[in-house]
Amino acid sequence: MSIDTLPLFLAHAIRLEEDSAINYDAMADALEVHGKSPVARLFRKMAHYSRLHLAEAEGRAAGLDLPRLKTWEYQWPGDDSPENAPADESDYAMNERDALILALKGEKGALAFYASVMETSGDTGVADLAKEFVEEESEHVSILEDWLARAPETGRFEDLDPPIAIG
């Protein structure tokens, strides 16, 4: 992977934050529909933070002519947009601790992506901006780790009529 121009890098950063906000909102919606509002609130908060970062990345991109990439042309290290918390690991019985663990995976994914751009980009301007983003993402990771350390060890939601496979 090599992201060597500022417009290309910012196109990635913008898509990463957009995808992350949409993904967190979808996870929040899914849990709300199933009556798990406290867990949903955490994902909603994460979506809000992603939108703040999106605005920041868009601000940096003001005046630049960003490339229009197709969904599959982004140079992500894995299968999905890197800050997307793994929605497939969520389930209706999850508690706030479980949700924090998934959010932490999302933030660590973004951190790893920016760190790899910082290390591999052939352009010093891109590497410098990636370093700034690495610092921000490291802060988010520490905050989430702190929340996780303080999150109570509550049990999972007790389903009195569980689906066959889980019951």
């Binding site: 949409i22 899914a30 709300e32 929605a87 999850m94």
Partner: peptide, 16 residues
């Protein structure tokens, strides 16, 4: 309309 699929269901990704 908010999907009523279970959290974690693969169908969300297909919609996306």
């Amino acid at each position: 309309v908010t999907p009523v699929w279970c959290p974690g269901c693969g169908h969300y990704a297909v919609l996306s």
